[in-house]
Write a protein that binds this DNA or RNA. Sequence first.
DNA 1: TATGAATGAGTCTTCATTCAT
DNA 2: GATGAATGAAGACTCATTCAT
Lengths: 185, 185, 185, 185
Amino acid sequence: MTTEKGERRRQALAEAAGALLREGGFDAVRHRAVADRAGLPLASTTYYFDSLEELVTAAVELTSRQELAAGRAELDAGTEPDPLELVLDQLLGRESRKGGLDAVLLRYEQLVGAGRRPYLAPLMRTLRVELDALLTEALARAGHPLDAAALRRVVEVVDGAVLSALIEADPDPRATARAALLRVL
Amino acid sequence: MTTEKGERRRQALAEAAGALLREGGFDAVRHRAVADRAGLPLASTTYYFDSLEELVTAAVELTSRQELAAGRAELDAGTEPDPLELVLDQLLGRESRKGGLDAVLLRYEQLVGAGRRPYLAPLMRTLRVELDALLTEALARAGHPLDAAALRRVVEVVDGAVLSALIEADPDPRATARAALLRVL
Amino acid sequence: MTTEKGERRRQALAEAAGALLREGGFDAVRHRAVADRAGLPLASTTYYFDSLEELVTAAVELTSRQELAAGRAELDAGTEPDPLELVLDQLLGRESRKGGLDAVLLRYEQLVGAGRRPYLAPLMRTLRVELDALLTEALARAGHPLDAAALRRVVEVVDGAVLSALIEADPDPRATARAALLRVL
Amino acid sequence: MTTEKGERRRQALAEAAGALLREGGFDAVRHRAVADRAGLPLASTTYYFDSLEELVTAAVELTSRQELAAGRAELDAGTEPDPLELVLDQLLGRESRKGGLDAVLLRYEQLVGAGRRPYLAPLMRTLRVELDALLTEALARAGHPLDAAALRRVVEVVDGAVLSALIEADPDPRATARAALLRVL
DNA sequence: TATGAATGAGTCTTCATTCAT
DNA sequence: GATGAATGAAGACTCATTCAT
């Protein structure tokens, strides 16, 4: 039943929601804001998504898959000489290359936010599996073949370091994360 | 100027706000909810706190200081045979001893939430300093004298592990955290 | 886009606001009061008007245009044998024919109120232009062709007299205004 | 019973209320604002004035009497070479010498505001009598001896002109008023 | 299939006034 | 005599969701 046009609109809404999520966190994802952002009628948000939760879920999924796909593409293309940068892209968001805390916040907000939003949990776990696969490959290419448990530990260390950087208002969380990553490898 | 009774009411409101924060996150801290919880009139919330932000700040501070004070007391009393448990108390919340994720969530929510709530940043940094002092002492008593940088790294590892546990819906995040702690020491 | 019914409701709200404005001044125009008066739900007031200012503006405009239209109609119909009465209608409000101060107050309240309500200024100036055109025509028909400057002076004299009458609680401000008008012509 | 200190505080509150009235109109006169402005406790406002209406009344009276007294003093001192300026001072407020509309607004706001505030009417009439006496004297000294009726007409013309200036956002209402005054004399 | 219209519930906050001390 | 504490009522405004068309 899904018209092509319908699918396009659904995607536009999810993208708008994703942008809002990035900029203002979960609380910023409101029907009106999403509709305005997408340039679509207010009612289209509830027409294409039964509830706000569904819309948020779609936004998280879209956002994350775009990051994953970009990482995978670069990995396959072999463009990036330093695979560790690809790892940091995934853990901090590619936008973190530009510096600043905002870009980093979203990922951790989502991680923690999932705790209060059980409806996100399944998606988060799925995404994690895909993330782990990508990271494993990138680290192997960087000369660090790791098994699943070891990878987890590496990710945890970086996550912990970034969390810490967020609170300290560390001006360059990516550098901090990179240091932690090198230390643990 | 502050009456004793006035101070008690203020505290009651902050405590109610803290409970709501623990149970439902930042979004659950609303004037009405706090007032109802404390069994006080709605307007008392704005009488004692100029804005919701102030109330949230008071809630975070109260909650955190209670945890810190409890840890400090136990440490000084020497009741707890295993100082590492005190460390875990501080990083996961004492309630995590009972198991379950809910108790753990708050701390990380606050850490990340401070990112979207700049008004919390100063408090978070102050609390961090006090936390570090307590942890340093506890770890020293456990036979692990650490300098500031080393301590930070230990905390980061545990934080990363807990964050991971939250997403995995790990049934026993405390055990996971303990394992990470032992590994890094 | 606007449904006919929608337009009718918008108008009903503006009319309710206008009635409140007349009876109780600017302070009486509140969302709740307007909604109750119009027999519509509270939220309809913010649905049709983005803010209270917009609603007040609509009320002023509607009220004033109705007066203007009525004056124009009578002027064109030639019903009123004494065109000066039409002038007084415009300057004191048609309701002032019934006597009493209340009817007169609104116009002057709006004139002065615009000072504290900059958002009304553009509308007030537009209305003034239309008013001047109507008055010029009515006075010409009464045998007093006036240029713009002369008209302004006439209006000012009447306005001054009415203002004075308002404070004196003059029982018949219309008669006072008429006397001033005749004197200045 | 009135302590000297009590009387001083009453006056301080009335003065604070007057300042707020001038700056923000009737709506700006609130208990809290007045107390803050006067640097006195909130409850002192209701202690010294049974209601807000009383406080507003006191503010209007104080403000107006100060203007009157200043005018009278200058008149008696013979400082001001042009008595017409004293007339304008009274009709537009002395602050209007500095130019701008704000200074002028208050007087007309009070004139009109009295319509919605019957409790002000007696005071307004009393003040008018005193004003008329002062104006008569000033105009006589300027070579324009006028009887009561003629004076009223002069005042009305100026009032009308100023009202008009307020709406047009006339940058120099005082000049406009002066021109109207000269014209009518 | 879409969407403009609509609204009940709820948001934070302000305020005049009362009262116990 | 003075005032800190307190609060009921009301303020403007937001929002997720429903529904008729």
